[in-house]
Simulated assay, not measured.
Amino acid sequence: MLQVRACEAGGRYDAVNKHWILPYTDKVLAKVKEVLAPMYPEIEVEDCREKRAKKKTKRLREHYRPCPEEMKEKLRVKRYSESTVRTYTSMFSEFLSYHYAHSPEEITADQIKAYMRHLVAEREVSESYQNQMINAIKFFYEKVLGGQRRTYFVERPRSGRNLPTVLSQTEMSALLKGIPNVKHKTIVTVIYSCGLRISELISMKVSDIDYGSRRILLKQAKGKKDRYVPLAERTELMVRAYLKRYNPEEYLFEGPSGGQYSPSSVRKFLKRYSKAVGIKKNVCPHTLRHSCATHLLENGVDLRYIQHLLGQNDSKTTEVYTHITEMGLNNIKNPLDQLDL
């Protein structure tokens, strides 16, 4: 039996597992079966398309319940990022609107668990969405109302482990060569060479660059921690040329009207340039961060240094790159090749 893996769109080669993943369309699958039927009478198709959560059930306007102001204030007092504030308040508002007939103080632990089951069984949300919802609910009841810590756990099917999308060094080179805009090219270069999160890039200020010690200070990065990242020689030359041309006032990369550069703008032009140079993968700013880590590993850099560079607390998070790198896989000698046959 032959197994064919099918995804949403844009066929791609899986270098780790050494096989192709084809677009999931009737035309493609029919052609595959037509060509391979003489050699493989039985062909099994594995649907690898991303499953999206079902939309929320529309509710009456009078059932809408906004997030309490006390929760917003508490989040800001505890210095949560604005992104987290927006996420938690939006999710808690959704939760309250579901239990519109009850005040927050009246909602029981059983009702919270029932809502979690609704998200998993009926809306089929992702694990990350479910976890964020739990965190938002726990924050209100524990931090705002001062309740005891509780665990709201709903068992769900074990999901597969998805490896992050990574560009090869050849693809990364092609991408950088294909960006004519100086500002855009500098942004992509800084993200890739420093292994940054998009939030770290847009928060970076001109004054954070230390040319003497060839490093950049990332202030209050994820987890509210400061850390340094190295400033590569090529990156420094590009940044200097960019600064001379654009002369930003405060942030290293600023929007047309000043202030922080828009993360959505970075995502948009990155997709546009990737498509223009023929990269079929779904490229986003985090892809550049994953690519940086993978290429460092392929160049022999120790995992502990990569973990520090990326600002990751858990070493297991960094170890995922050992599953992606092609260098190690290609150097493994198959035991069959060692036999005297």
Results as ranks from 00 to 15, higher is better:
Q220G: 12
I332H: 07
V283T: 04
H290T: 02
T189L: 09
M91I: 14
S203W: 00
V4T: 02
S274T: 05
R150T: 04
R227P: 00
W20C: 08
L237F: 13
G223A: 06
T325G: 09
A101N: 10
Q148H: 11
Y40K: 09
R267W: 08
T165A: 09
K183F: 01
G258E: 05
T87N: 12
P164N: 03
T287Q: 01
G195I: 01
K58W: 03
S168I: 04
A293D: 04
R76L: 15
K78L: 15
P66I: 04
I198Q: 00
K222F: 01
E34R: 11
E82N: 10
M133T: 15
H286K: 07
K222A: 00
G212V: 10
R289F: 06
R272C: 08
R79C: 06
K268Y: 15
Q169V: 14
K74N: 02
D314N: 15
E106W: 09
L231P: 01
T57M: 11
K222T: 00
E62H: 15
Y211S: 13
T186M: 01
V301K: 06
D302K: 10
S264N: 14
G259H: 06
L297I: 06
R197P: 01
W20N: 07
P41M: 04
S83Q: 12
L2S: 07
L296R: 05
A6L: 12
T322G: 07
E298H: 09
V4D: 00
K333R: 14
P41H: 05
R150K: 13
G178M: 05
S168C: 05
N181M: 09
R240P: 02
M39S: 14
K280V: 14
S207G: 15
I112K: 08
A232Q: 10
E50K: 12
Y152K: 04
H118W: 12
S83A: 13
I279T: 00
S262R: 14
P157Y: 06
E46F: 13
N181Q: 12
T89S: 07
G195W: 01
H308E: 15
L119Q: 02
E200G: 01
P23Y: 07
T84F: 01
P38V: 08
D26K: 14
R158L: 11
R117Q: 15
E155Y: 05
N247R: 15
Y64S: 08
N135K: 11
S257D: 12
V120S: 08
T165Y: 05
K18M: 09
E73V: 13
D226V: 06
I107P: 00
L145M: 13
K275G: 12
T151Q: 15
I112C: 09
S264C: 13
A136F: 00
K31V: 10
H118L: 11
Y152E: 01
S291G: 08
M172K: 03
Y80L: 05
T87A: 15
R149D: 12
I306A: 01
G147T: 09
G300E: 05
E250T: 13
V77F: 13
Y261L: 03
